[in-house]
């Protein structure tokens, strides 16, 4: 019997980057764990912290990074822990064990979402065509996480780093192809909107 083959969400697509102002690629080495703990359950939160070595972010729309993983705030009682795919089982096991007997939930959801990484200076301008949040705001810095409407679907946005700006978009797996279609349309060079709120040639009078 052949070796079991694991396919990423966009395995059936080639991302054609020419003519785009942004580098778009799927990250399929990402493991994801859905973690639920009530916000006032200090014991369970402490148990999770002992496993992860860092506190889960308590502030909305933030993320914290630890050794080999990142915790994304998804709700007052929900986090998405991302890690290298090869370590998902390890983290799922250790979190489940630490929270045994507690009212908490640990679910491996690594296959549920596709992760699309967008890199380039034009990142924010492209995202202005994808979501209605104030993407140009200074509040959006590396570590920022926000669940959004992406085009017409549910998604989550994370700012990974800057210089150049690097964002990750999380969408449910079945919508990955649609999300890529939307991004390819929005990121066309011929449709670039330039930097809003920045110096530009003065219009005639």
């Amino acid at each position: 019997m052949s070796e079991a083959e694991w396919l990423n969400a966009l395995a059936h697509r080639t991302v054609e980057l020419s003519g785009l102002v942004l580098a778009i690629e799927e990250r399929f080495d990402v493991g994801m764990i859905d973690l639920r703990i009530l916000p006032d359950d200090t014991e369970s939160l402490a148990a999770a912290q002992r496993v992860l070595g860092i506190a889960l972010p308590g502030e909305a729309r933030t993320s914290t990074a630890g050794d080999g993983f990142t915790c994304l705030w998804f709700s007052v009682d929900q986090w998405l822990v991302t890690c290298d795919r090869t370590r998902t089982q390890e983290f799922t096991k250790s979190l489940s064990k630490a929270l045994e007997g507690h009212f908490a939930s640990v679910t491996d959801v690594s296959d549920m979402r596709a992760v699309i990484r967008l890199t380039g200076d034009a990142g924010r301008q492209v995202l202005m065509k994808c979501m209605s949040i104030d993407i140009l705001s200074k509040e959006i810095r590396p570590g920022y996480v926000r669940r959004v409407n992406f085009g017409e679907i549910a998604g989550a946005l994370r700012m990974v780093s800057n210089e150049p700006d690097c964002f990750e978009l999380y969408v449910f797996r079945s919508y990955a192809s649609y999300a890529l279609d939307w991004l390819e349309e929005a990121a066309r060079e011929s449709a670039a909107i330039g930097k809003p709120f920045g110096p530009s040639p003065a219009p005639p009078v």
């Binding site: 679907i153 079945s174 919508y175 192809s177 649609y178 349309e185």
Partner: peptide, 18 residues
């Protein structure tokens, strides 16, 4: 806007769609 053609409606794909 862009909501036409293949973007008219999000079309979902199962893991076996291909």
């Amino acid at each position: 806007g862009p909501v036409r053609g293949k973007l008219f409606q999000p079309v979902r794909r199962t893991p076996v769609q291909s």
